[in-house]
Structures are given as structure tokens and as C-alpha cells.
Computed example of a mutant assay.
Amino acid sequence: MPLSEHSRYTLGNTLGVLKVIAGIVLLFAISWEIIAGDHVHLSRTYLTIQLIVCIVFLCDFFVRWAADPRPGRFFWRNLAFLLISIPWLNILDWSGVRMTHDWGILVGLIPMLRAFLAMVIVVRWLVSGNKMNRIFWAYIFTVVVFTYISALVFYDYEVTVNDKLHGFGNAVWWAWMNVTTVGAEIFAVTAVGKVVTILLPSLGMMFFPIFTTYILQEYAPPKPEKEHK
């Protein structure tokens, strides 16, 4: 029996809350793994948390797929969400594939894409204003989260080989200086670090027009009304 519109709306909100919680948990887990880990091995705790979070994402996909009145269209439209929800890191671990810590972190970041999309729901809940306000806060959220994740990746790959990187605080400072296109005196020495160094200012330049448009709209003097003849 197909669900009513109200039932699908309630189900969507419930799943949305679970996805947000799972996304936050995964972000904390990967942060702890990188900041407090040994940069050589992936801990069993982190692998377990990632598996549980991916199961939550997969359950969300299959429940919404079953509840959708047009399941075929839903599946193909959301196939990318399914692929990034699969616990690839755990599958590789169970298969006995030996990966370096560097590759493990990269594979482990795939579900973070799903977590990021889930946490964008927070913006919709918090902002009830006009469309420009939502775009602005989505911009702030995207920049903050992407910059933080970039700092994590940069720190994990550079901390053991970069003499100028001293602690995670330096990595955060490096990330914010680059996303604002100012630049920092910490230069990447690894291939992944150099890629992130290119992506960060590119993100900043792409999103800066949104900030400018918002400021102009909010603080520009109102246009005088035309006098009727």
C-alpha cells in the first residue's frame, strides 16, 4: 500500500534527523582518527563507526526507495547517493586488501560526501527566510565544512613530512588562509596536499560572488519608487 503524502513527509523528516546525526558522528570519528591517530594504521573503532554510519545511509536509501511512488525513477536519480553510501573501506578490509593509511583515509572520505549532503539539511531547518538567505547560509556552511575537512586531509598527509607544519592548529590556519586566497607560509610537499592547495582557493573564488551579492542585497539602499504622472 503506497504511503500518503503526509506519511512520506514525516518519514522524510525522521530519516533526515538520523542522517544528520550519522553525518556528525562520522565527522567526529574521522577527525579523531586523523588528529589523534598514528598516521600509519586505521583503528578498529573508526572502521566500526564508519560501517554503522554507512548502514544508516543505506537504510535511508532503501526505505525512501520503497516508499517512493515511482521506485524506478527514484533509483536512477539517486544511484550516486547509493554508491557513496556503500562502506567501501570496510569491504576492502574484509577482503584482506592491504592499504596504506593514506589510501585508507581517501577511501574513508567517500561516505563523508553523503554525510555532507545530509548535514546541509541543517541549513534548511535553521533558515526560514527568503531564498537569498538560504543560499548565503548554505554558502557559509559549505565553506566552513569543506575548509575543515581540507585541514584534516592536509594535516594527515603533511604532518610527518612537512617541517613547517606543527600541530593541527597550523593546518586549520593554512586552510583558512588558502580558502580566502590570502595564502600561507606553509607549502605542501605531498601530491594530495598540493591538490588540496589548488582546490581551496578555487572554492573561495567560486563562492565569493554569493557573499558579495548577499551583502549588496541586504545593505543596499532601497530603490525609490517611481512617481506616477
Rank of each mutant, 00 (worst) to 15 (best):
V161T: 04
V179Q: 11
L51P: 02
L106W: 15
F81I: 14
Y148A: 08
V179W: 10
L200Y: 11
F62R: 03
L18R: 07
M132E: 08
F141E: 15
D68Y: 02
I84K: 06
W176G: 07
F28I: 09
C59N: 08
E158L: 15
R73T: 12
Y157C: 03
V53S: 10
L152G: 07
T45W: 10
V97K: 15
F136T: 09
R44V: 13
F57W: 04
H101Y: 02
L113V: 12
T213H: 11
R77E: 10
Y219H: 15
R70Q: 01
I49C: 12
D93A: 12
L42T: 08
I105R: 10
L89E: 04
W32Q: 14
V153P: 09
I215L: 13
G183E: 04
G23H: 10
K223Q: 01
E33D: 05
L165F: 13
R44F: 06
K229N: 04
C59S: 07
L200M: 12
R77W: 02
T212Q: 07
I30M: 11
I35R: 02
L126S: 07
L26A: 12
L89S: 05
M1L: 03
R8Q: 02
L3S: 04
T190C: 11
A67F: 11
S95P: 09
P111W: 06
G193W: 01
L83Y: 02
S150M: 05
V161E: 01
V144K: 06
T147R: 07
V144L: 14
Y219A: 08
V40W: 10
L27P: 12
F154L: 02
R77F: 04
M132H: 15
W65R: 03
Y148T: 12
D102Q: 10
S128V: 15
N13W: 02
I55F: 15
V189N: 05
I110R: 06
K194D: 00
P221V: 11
V25I: 12
